[in-house]
Design a protein around this nucleic acid. Sequence first.
DNA 1: ATTGATTGACTGACTAGTCGGTCAATGAAT
DNA 2: ATTCATTGACCGACTAGTCAGTCAATCAAT
Lengths: 191, 191
Amino acid sequence: MGRNPDTNAEQRAETRQLLMRAGLELFADRGLERTTVDAIAANAGCSKGLVYHYFPNKRALAEAVLADWVEQVAAVAAGSDVVEAPDERLAAFATAMAAHIEANPDSYRLNLRALTDPELRELAGELTADRAGPDHPWADAFALAGSESPDLDGRLFHASLLGIFAHHALSPHPTPLADLVERLIELTLDR
Amino acid sequence: MGRNPDTNAEQRAETRQLLMRAGLELFADRGLERTTVDAIAANAGCSKGLVYHYFPNKRALAEAVLADWVEQVAAVAAGSDVVEAPDERLAAFATAMAAHIEANPDSYRLNLRALTDPELRELAGELTADRAGPDHPWADAFALAGSESPDLDGRLFHASLLGIFAHHALSPHPTPLADLVERLIELTLDR
DNA sequence: ATTGATTGACTGACTAGTCGGTCAATGAAT
DNA sequence: ATTCATTGACCGACTAGTCAGTCAATCAAT
């Protein structure tokens, strides 16, 4: 039977990552449909058959890639929840998210695609985070900041962040994310 | 020879519109790739051959649909340029744009797709309006409003608008556009 | 009025190419 | 000898685009 199981499992995980990175890169700038499995294999430097050895189908590969991104976002959110002052948590999250996006542009571009593409959207579950309640989950932060319309401000902040990130990911000459996010916080959250 | 040219041309333009509407509807929620010409024909209640009688290929149909949207946006912009007070023009444009998007959701959803899809983007020309200059075209409005960083505020306003519109188009329970846009203007442009 | 010519909108069967997915064979490690 | 990673030829389904031909309307000449 098998060779050293540790080395084996490591090797396997490594190849899996390689395929996922190759897929992410192509999905991010051509979309799911226009990315052929042949192209993914070529980008990963292996054969098409190997892709199917690691993933049952193209959809599953995309699913894994998207799940990875969702996990990353959760980690960023968890990180900013550790901030001591409750009134600084939202700002901390926004800033941390900006940094993470700047460091992982492909992941974010794929995430944007997932917003507009119903098939990808289904794969990733609810990315838009439409909590059922009438109040936006960020309303609390604005209530603390003394806003007279916390719910509306929460929604506006959410939409503005989305816009800033989207514009950054799509524009060929992006404004530094940090500046825009900082200014947004200044205009809405501070005071 | 020839029959009444007026009736003929009218009929032709009407059929063309019908096909474009059918295309827009499908393109908006499935994207270019996943919309088959057969589906467009079925949605328009005609044969596939007829689609090709009016357009040389699927791409050309999409091009026509997108060009139509670009024209609509130009019309909205032209309309708000008529506003007398220069310091109210940007706010007028944002409000008018919100109303137009609310009235033409399919068109805007297709426009969003065009932002993320490189193929559609090419078709529509430069939708992102990345003027070459270092200053954002909306900086003037913020200079008039007494902003200490007009360029940054112009970019932030642009991105926020994009985010508001995008969120509205994608969310199943959208916040009324007018409220968000009004609040954005209040927080950034007024005072 | 009737007839025959002409036009172009419209159809549906067909073609050619593409791509997701399969599988039998090979290689390499133990 | 067994096991698993890896290959690439192959298949079937799907779809963009073509094309030969139908039909209804209009026109020109009688």
